[in-house]
């Protein structure tokens, strides 16, 4: 922990105290997990391995459309102001605000077998209930608004003048985006990807409604709790941290290394 140097010697101590308290509060549930885990009978329930594979694989897959669709939207939002902009902002905020369970219900209503989009897609052979695509769909809806918000802030940090200079040097807008906007926003975009990953992997409510199967880790934790009790939850939770943390941790460390 560092603090900005100030003339008063007591300042670092003043800021350190609430900071330490915040860290302590964050650590409490995990200390509880450490204590509550029955280390002598540490074992996994049937299907836990499959849940890990489902969560990791589909979360990685979900990142593809999130990044592919969210990046241009974030750039557009960062660069242009249009009439009725508040509607776009309201839409993004609504997507962020909607409780996950409610989002799941809404997705089921639209993409489910009786929903307007669901019926059409089912005819085209794409089933968006209790299927891998349904799982990825729910994760996308959970993570996309977070990604767009973070990526938008990243692009807003890129001086517009540099993009324009690239144009005057003969680059097309697309190449200016690739060679100037993307590299200069990369730290913020890395943070946005990390955030999207965390949101996608940890999503429970929406996934529970539209994709109870295939079961990812969050739903399997629920199932384990129902079927076997708490002792079947903790081992899978440890694995969850083990597989979920490396990507955002590495990205975050890379960002901070570049910033320092």
């Amino acid at each position: 922990m560092t603090s900005s140097p100030g003339p008063a010697p007591f300042r670092p101590r003043l800021s350190a105290l609430p900071a330490a308290l915040a860290l302590l509060l964050l650590a409490v549930p995990f200390a509880g997990l450490l204590l509550a885990t029955d280390w002598r009978h540490f074992g996994f329930a049937h299907g836990d391995g499959g849940a890990v594979r489902v969560s990791l694989g589909y979360s990685l897959l979900a990142l593809v459309p999130i990044v592919a669709l969210g990046t241009p939207l974030a750039w557009w939002l960062a660069r242009y102001r249009v009439r009725g902009q508040w509607l776009v902002d309201a839409l993004l905020l609504a997507a962020l605000l909607t409780p996950p369970l409610a989002m799941g219900l809404l997705l089921a209503a639209v993409y489910g077998p009786y929903g307007p989009a669901g019926r059409l897609l089912e005819r085209a052979g794409l089933l968006l209930t209790n299927s891998a695509p349904a799982f990825v769909l729910a994760q996308c809806y959970a993570a996309l608004p977070y990604y767009v918000m973070a990526a938008r802030t990243a692009f807003e940090g890129v001086p517009r003048e540099l993009e324009q200079i690239a144009l005057t040097l003969g680059l097309s807008p697309w190449r200016s985006f690739v060679q100037v906007s993307l590299p200069l926003a990369r730290l913020g975009l890395a943070a946005a990807v990390a955030l999207a990953w965390v949101r996608a992997l940890g999503e429970f409510g929406a996934v529970l409604i539209v994709a109870y199967y295939p079961q990812g880790i969050p739903v399997k934790l629920w199932v384990n709790l129902q079927d076997f009790g708490l002792d079947a939850v903790y081992p899978l939770l440890w694995v969850f941290f083990l597989v979920a943390l490396p990507l955002p941790l590495t990205l975050g460390m890379a960002v901070r290394r570049r910033l320092s």
Binding site: E161, L162, I165, A166, T168, L169, G170, P173, P183, L184
Partner: peptide, 19 residues
């Protein structure tokens, strides 16, 4: 469009690409 104008534009502050 700007990319097809043969100008060399030096803005205030020079705007070099920092990366």
């Amino acid at each position: 469009p700007p990319q097809r104008r043969a100008v060399g534009y030096l803005p205030q502050g020079h705007a070099l690409f920092p990366h």
